[in-house]
Design a protein around this nucleic acid. Structure first.
Length: 143
DNA sequence: GCCAACGTTGGC
DNA sequence: GCCAACGTTGGC
């Protein structure tokens, strides 16, 4: 099992929508980047991921879990793009901002810091625990 | 709104 | 197969 970070512009698909429309699971569609797609193909059912709001808020705001492994992206006509389905698990009581991540020594190697453009990123177990702790989750879910 | 970084495309 | 041009993303 593994941990991930999924980025979304709140204007396109927000955490609020994920909780409302994607509580049982929703396609993480629209990814058109090979590296991001490959990361999704590596995901297993039960893997957990941070839900990150890019652009405005720039913070991890919640946690989702993978409920369906990679399958064709229904918004893609070419058949070459795939996506997973994710369901909302919990809010982060205190959103963890990019600024906070950048100033936390244990998180300086996060992909988010070093390759901010990759929209689907791996997260290490140590980073997972640290961000959960910063987010105010006393008993973080584990994959 | 700007611009740097990155990825992709296409001409050679 | 290289690389310049272009488009997009996302932080500031």
């Amino acid at each position: 099992m593994a941990y991930w970070l999924l980025k979304s512009e709140p204007g396109a698909w927000s955490w609020e929508q994920q909780k409302k429309e994607g509580r049982q699971g929703a396609e993480w569609d629209g990814v058109r980047n090979y590296q991001a797609r490959n990361n999704m193909k590596a995901m297993k059912k039960g893997d957990l991921a941070f839900f990150y709001h890019s652009v405005g808020e720039k913070a991890c705001v919640g946690i989702v879990k993978v409920v369906a492994e990679a399958h064709p992206d229904s918004t893609d006509g070419t058949g070459q793009w795939e996506c997973v389905d994710v369901a909302a698990v919990t809010d982060l009581p205190k959103p963890v901002t990019l600024a906070e991540i950048k100033t936390t020594p244990q998180l300086k190697d996060m992909v988010l810091v070093n390759n901010s453009r990759l929209s689907v990123q791996p997260v290490t177990a140590g980073e997972w625990r640290k961000v959960c702790a910063l987010g105010g989750l006393k008993d973080p879910p584990t994959a």
